[in-house]
Amino acid sequence: METLLALLVGLLVAVATFLILSPSIFRLLLGIGVLGNAVNLMIFTGGRLTPVTPPIIHEGETALIAPYANPLPQALILTAIVIGFAFFAYALMTAVRASRDFGHLDARRLDAAERPELVSAEPADIESFRARKEKHG
């Protein structure tokens, strides 16, 4: 079973790598999403699969009785899922914004940060800096 899951993780990582290398930002984000799921599955497998009792201490006992399922990978995965979800949402929003601003999501043509006429010329906080200076003398 662990071998099977390991192969599945490998397959998912391969798919994710393929998607991440694509010039389309949207595919890149899908790739990151797939990669996140592959990692979660990998942590799950790394914690060893044991088809046994859940890790609950029963009444009258003071400690877990082996064999029990490993609860730690589940805590780790839960954390990783929450973080991954938040980031995925943020990255998607940024991509939406980029597609509105630039009219495309082709990484080969995304170069707004490399254009001197857009970057070096009067960033917003310089103007406010000046405005404040004028106000305060």
Binding site: A91, A98, A112, R115
Partner: peptide, 18 residues
């Protein structure tokens, strides 16, 4: 600041750091 260079930079920064 939501300027165009920032949107571009943020997208790349998020992707590579993720």
């Amino acid at each position: 600041g939501q300027s165009k260079p920032q949107v571009d930079a943020t997208l790349k920064y998020v992707a590579i750091n993720l």
